[in-house]
Nucleic acid binder design. Structure first.
Lengths: 156, 156
DNA sequence: TTGCTCCTCACGTCACGTGAGGTGGC
DNA sequence: TTGCTCCTCACGTCACGTGAGGTGGC
């Protein structure tokens, strides 16, 4: 194998427990004891090593930072933090649902427009066929008539 | 005027200031001083009489009850209460928007179905006209041909 | 005068964060 | 041994609720 010139950044799953409590506390700018307290209150649930040591994931640290922001900067108590986290999650889901519904609206519009186009084309064909019904040859310039969606109907 | 047998319930606008602080406090199950404190913190804004007496509306009392629930039962502090009230309002607006978008989806579907029907009817008419073009009489039973939305096209 | 209003100040309580103290395994 | 982990207990601080105290107008 060739010698590596650049170091690859280690890829770690967001949910994998990788930080022991002292590291997680430092990353979240909290006291380690505070993390234990939050766990006792059910605000955070780090994994444990086989020996019982807490292992915090990237996502855990992210959550801790959000909690830190709410308690230290915004002044919420822990009961409020729990509810706010729930409500923000709910708002996120609602926004997703709005996006999905709006996308569906656009998709159905396109679908219906295509359907209308198809129906118009078919109608045009049928009219051609009806005109040519008795073996007559229909001149090309008279055959381009199209049925319009709306507005006054055109007469040839 | 005839004597009234039944008393009409007095109709009061939701936003009209009608309760003095002692009444509002009793209705919200709070200490009057607590209401003054909440006002100082910007959590509630009762109107004032010309003399300066606070006048709480039905909506104010409703809001106070919600706050009372959040502080006394759920244990939020006031910073949390403020944020939760905001987020609940946001969730309410998002849900409204979902309903509006879904209603619009249904309306557009109906509109497009009607449009398709109109185009099909027009096409049918054109075909009739084409067949009758040279003064021929088109028998009624052959004239009912319709352009189909989808599926294999029918041949007469 | 009584009972309300207005206001400010102060105290008690409780939640929360953190420090201490003692244990155990790399 | 050092420095981490685990745990429980206890204390300091701060927010919040409420009581007290003094004022003023129906």
């Amino acid at each position: 194998m060739a010698t590596r010139r650049t170091r690859a950044r280690i890829e770690v799953s967001e949910d994998r427990g990788v930080f022991m409590i002292s590291i997680a506390a430092e990353l979240a700018d909290m006291h380690p004891q505070t993390l234990r307290m939050y766990e006792a209150r059910g605000l955070i649930a780090p994994r444990r090593s086989p020996k019982g040591t807490r292992l915090y994931s990237q996502a855990d640290v992210e959550r801790l930072r959000r909690i830190q922001e709410m308690t230290a900067e915004l002044g919420f108590n822990l009961a409020g933090v729990e509810r706010v986290l729930e409500l923000e999650e709910e708002a996120r889901r609602l926004r997703e649902r709005i996006l999905a519904t709006e996308r569906r609206l656009l998709a159905e519009r396109a679908e219906m427009a295509a359907e209308l186009e198809r129906v118009r084309a078919l109608a045009s064909q049928e009219i051609q066929r009806a005109r040519a019904a008795r073996g007559e040859i229909v001149p090309y310039q008279r055959g381009g008539e199209i049925v319009r969606i709306s507005g006054p109907k055109r007469r040839g």
